[in-house]
C-alpha cells in the first residue's frame, strides 16, 4: 500500500521547480502541515506566505501576487477554500483572471469523523459553476505530480482537490499517461462505462475486475479533468457501451455525474447511473468506512452496475 498522499506529490513538484523559478509562491492559511507544504516553507521561506486562519485573505492575497507575475499556489482545506472564500475565488481569481492555483486539501469526506463542517462534498458543483475556473481531481500521486507540473506551465486559474489520506496507486513512476484536459482511459469494454474521478477511480477499477469475472466488459475512465470535462471521451465511452455509471466523492448535484449525464443525454442517450455521496451529512467514519457504507467500493459499484444491466434486460 502506498503511504504518500497526493498532497505531498504537489509539494514535491513545487519544491523541485521553485529552485529555478523564483516566481513560484505558496500561500497557506495555518495549513502548511496539513497541506504537506511545510518542506516548501522551510526550503523557500522567501517564496512562502502564511496568512493565518483567514481563507478569504488567502485567496485575495494570492490574486494580488499573481497580478504581479507570481505563480501563486494557495492551499487550504477544500471545505473552507470552496465555501468561505468562494467569492474571492469567483471575483479575484476567476473573474480577474489571475494565475492562482487553488489547492483544496483534505477534500471530499477525508476528514471523516470531524463532520460536515470539514467535508467538501459540494466543491465540484460550486467551483465548476464559476466561469474561467477549471476543476481537477487527480486520482493518485503520480497523476497529481503530472497535473501539478502541467499547471505550472499555464497562467490560468484552477481549483485542484486532493484527499487527506494516501490512496492506492493507479499508475506508476514508469507509466502514468497524462494529457492535459483529456481523460485517461484505463481500460476499454463494451457493456458498461465507469467514469470516475479522484479517490473513486480505484474502486471503479476494482469493480471492473469483479464484473469481468462475470463476463461483463467494462470501460474505465479516470476523469481527473472535471472541468473542462473531456466530452469526447465521455461520448465515445457512452457510444461503445450499454450503460454509463459515474462515481464521485461528491454530493448528487452538480458534480461529475451531472456533467456526464448532460453530455450523454445530448450526444448519445444511454442510461446513466450516478453513484455519489447522499444529500445529507454523511455517516461518521473513516473514508473507507463511509465509502463502504454507501456502496462506493468495488463490490458496491459492481452491484449497482449489475442491477442496472438487468433492469435494461441485459
Amino acid at each position: 500500500m502506498n503511504n504518500i498522499p497526493n498532497r505531498k506529490a504537489i509539494c514535491d513538484v513545487l519544491l523541485k521547480n521553485a529552485e529555478n523559478d523564483k516566481n513560484i509562491v505558496v500561500l497557506c492559511s495555518d495549513s502548511r502541515g496539513s497541506a504537506s507544504l511545510a518542506p516548501f516553507a522551510d526550503a523557500f521561506p522567501e517564496q512562502f506566505a502564511e496568512v493565518g486562519i483567514a481563507e478569504q485573505d488567502l485567496v485575495s492575497i494570492a490574486a494580488g501576487f499573481a497580478h504581479c507575475g507570481k505563480k501563486a499556489f494557495a492551499a487550504s482545506p477544500a471545505c473552507f477554500l470552496s465555501t468561505r472564500s468562494y467569492e474571492q475565488c469567483k471575483v479575484d481569481v476567476a473573474y480577474s483572471n489571475t494565475n492562482v492555483k487553488l489547492i483544496g486539501i483534505s477534500g471530499g469526506i477525508s476528514y471523516g469523523a470531524l463532520g460536515m463542517s470539514h467535508h467538501s462534498a459540494q466543491d465540484i458543483a460550486a467551483m465548476s459553476a464559476i466561469p474561467n475556473m477549471r476543476v481537477y481531481i487527480p486520482s493518485d500521486r503520480f497523476q497529481t505530480a503530472k497535473l501539478t507540473q502541467a499547471l505550472l506551465g499555464d497562467e490560468k486559474p484552477a481549483y485542484i482537490r486532493v484527499g487527506r489520506n494516501p490512496v492506492e496507486d493507479i499508475y506508476s513512476e514508469e507509466s502514468c499517461p497524462f494529457e492535459m484536459n483529456r481523460a485517461t482511459v484505463l481500460q476499454k469494454g463494451t457493456d458498461v462505462s465507469l467514469i470516475a474521478c479522484g479517490e473513486m477511480v480505484n474502486p471503479a477499477l476494482n469493480a471492473a475486475k469483479l464484473l469481468e469475472k462475470e463476463n461483463i466488459s467494462v470501460t474505465v475512465l479516470d476523469m481527473y479533468c472535471v472541468k473542462p470535462i473531456d466530452k469526447e471521451a465521455v461520448t465515445e465511452a457512452a457510444e461503445k457501451s450499454r450503460i454509463v455509471v459515474t462515481v464521485e466523492e461528491h454530493s448528487p448535484f452538480g458534480g461529475l455525474g451531472s456533467m456526464v449525464s448532460q453530455i450523454v443525454s445530448s450526444e448519445c442517450p444511454r442510461r446513466v447511473i450516478n453513484i455519489s455521496l447522499p444529500d445529507e451529512p454523511v455517516i461518521t467514519g473513516t473514508s473507507k468506512e463511509v465509502f463502504d457504507y454507501y456502496g462506493m467500493n468495488g463490490e458496491g459499484i459492481a452491484k449497482t452496475v449489475k442491477n442496472a444491466l438487468s433492469a435494461e434486460g441485459i
Binding site: 509562491v25 506566505a49 478569504q56 485573505d57 485575495s60 492575497i61 494570492a62 490574486a63 494580488g64 501576487f65 499573481a66 497580478h67 504581479c68 507575475g69 507570481k70 501563486a72 467569492e87 474571492q88 471575483v91 479575484d92 473573474y95 480577474s96
Partner: peptide, 18 residues
C-alpha cells in the same frame, strides 16, 4: 476587477508583498 466590497485591501496586500 472589483464590485464586491472588502476585496481591494487583501488583494493589495498580495501586490505589496510581491
Amino acid at each position: 476587477n472589483s464590485g464586491s466590497l472588502g476585496h481591494g485591501l487583501p488583494v493589495c496586500v498580495g501586490m505589496a508583498l510581491a
